[in-house]
Write a protein that binds this DNA or RNA. Structure first.
Lengths: 186, 186, 186, 186
DNA sequence: TATGAATGAGGCTTCATTCAT
DNA sequence: AATGAATGAAGCCTCATTCAT
């Protein structure tokens, strides 16, 4: 028997450290050497767990999405008024803003560095998943879900490049206004 | 002073080629050698015009913004109904979608590769400028301008990472709906 | 002692697979991992059988020679006319050309990768053995055996680097001519 | 103007050092770093002169062949008796044995490491060139040239793997015998 | 004995940047 | 001002070998 290690745990540690590096300093800064060092293994060992660097990016995304899906689902209240739903969504955004900003950036990096169609498809699915979660929380049809998701993503983006413009309370108010308007109209 | 003209023309050529490369293939793929070759100068000459690579990114951004501001202003009609204003905005977005997607990505790259506070401030100003233009076109107050700009940016972002989800007609319809609602309400 | 049988069988399997890999793709391409996988053992196990990679090359060569000596001997006819002897030799060369080309190359690899005097001596003995076999088949004295062996080896080498120049029928004719000449002269 | 260097001279120096390393220690030992160090340049500079490692091998071969062709031609006497021609050839072999042994090995390495058809074709041409030179010196028809070349190559090979078997005087005697025989027969 | 995870030096190559001309 | 040769650190990856189990 070889050295006993929890293969999955080590793999996860690598992916987590890769995420930390990429989120903090970008895809370019997350070199194989730095990922290895951060995960406490040698570069050679990295290749024991992943065939190449894209595979790490890929695995990282898969892991992130899986984790988020669980969290998002858990955060959805059983049943609630439209106003409460907006509140829940923004509470979540407030907590996870930095994480989602990192995700937003990383999704773009995948498009730069992942020629594989599979990886891009995974990102598309992930985006669709988050969008569906928003639709679910806010009880929106697909067209409005896309719009609402745009609103959120654009807010996150502005938070990166123009932080002083961010005001989640204001955004929540606007969202509430629209939801209320829709409710009134019907 | 013919030298100065020459100098500026060369500088502009470098920045244009840098934009072309970075927009098409990303900051990382736009190596100094490729930029130099594309601009028809030697690598050494590049360093006469820009102290380092981030400075090119920086200069490029500045140039782009200057050009866009003129174009955006020109595209704004003198006076129009709310519905017409939405139509004008989306016509512009349809024409320039790829350009704005590139800008969206490049703005993030500035944050990665430009440690200088000046450069980040320039991006912030640029974002504020585009936001103001949107506010101007749609006749919105600052809070709603931020929301509308988020909506646009988020749509562009989704266009990069999930192209199949894009539908500008649908988005225009939604925007029109909101504008109309606001008009009705008052 | 079933263990011993097992041990030898595994060892033989490793050497056979090593030969297959090295003959097909060269010493460099035959990595320890590939040899292990081909032989159906783990890399760790490989090191129970051989102290290092050169030792595999060495063992492989020893095994090949043992096998060949038997085959060569078997192929020698009891007694025959000079012309028949040439025919037998070339029939053998035709069948085994690829094998001997591999051997020719591998003998050089031993010189590159085996610092041990023993191994080089083994190659020398092997070469001497093949030369003696040729002498035996053709009934030549040592000096002419060396020449005849050179002729064969050189033909194999040309077959590797300049395949279009190969023509074993032509070579057989030349060999036949020399043998006949010698017979006539005496 | 850039730093003034004799581009061709530097290129030649790199190729010469590459040859020295490969001849002494084999293709595998001739790493880009070692070649660079031996040639007195940095690894980066190596890539200024050659796009990749195969290009060095390729260039090296081209250079070697060119040099040899000149030397071989120069060594051919204007007109001579068959016996004198043999003597000239063996004098040349005696002087250059080590060089030709290295060439013999390197030609095989090219086949291992050069997937490009061009490179293999160059080796074929080189072999054909040396063969033609032998034919020229000894005044042989193509079929016998191939045989004579085999004889020489095989002798060089035996000189590598079984040095104690080498005896150029003996080989010269045999060659002389054959040449004389041919002359007598006609 | 057998396994395969782990190592880390080293392979080829690229790149921003410098500097002699 | 302009050139492009030169640098060397660092990128991704492979490999023979070791070692805990």
């Amino acid at each position: 028997m070889p050295k006993v290690v929890d293969h999955d745990a080590r793999r996860a540690e690598v992916l987590d450290q890769a995420y930390r590096l990429m989120a903090d300093e970008g895809y370019g800064a997350a070199t194989m050497r730095r990922i290895a060092r951060a995960a406490g293994v040698s570069t050679g060992t990295l290749y024991h767990y992943f065939p190449d660097k894209p595979a790490i990016l890929d695995g990282m995304f898969e892991r992130l999405i899986g984790q988020d899906q669980a969290r998002v689902t858990a955060a959805i209240p059983e049943a609630a008024s439209p106003a409460e739903r907006v509140r829940v969504l923004f509470a979540f955004l407030r907590d996870e803003a930095e994480h989602f900003r990192a995700l937003l950036r990383l999704a773009l990096e995948v498009h730069r560095h992942e020629p594989e169609e599979d990886s891009r498809a995974r990102v598309q699915e992930a985006v669709a998943g988050y969008r569906a979660a928003v639709a679910d929380v806010l009880d929106l049809d697909p067209a409005l879900a896309h719009a609402a998701f745009s609103f959120i993503v654009g807010g996150l983006w502005q938070g990166i490049v123009d932080p002083r413009s961010v005001d989640l309370d204001r955004d929540e108010g606007i969202a509430l206004g629209f939801v209320t308007l829709r409710a009134d109209r019907s």
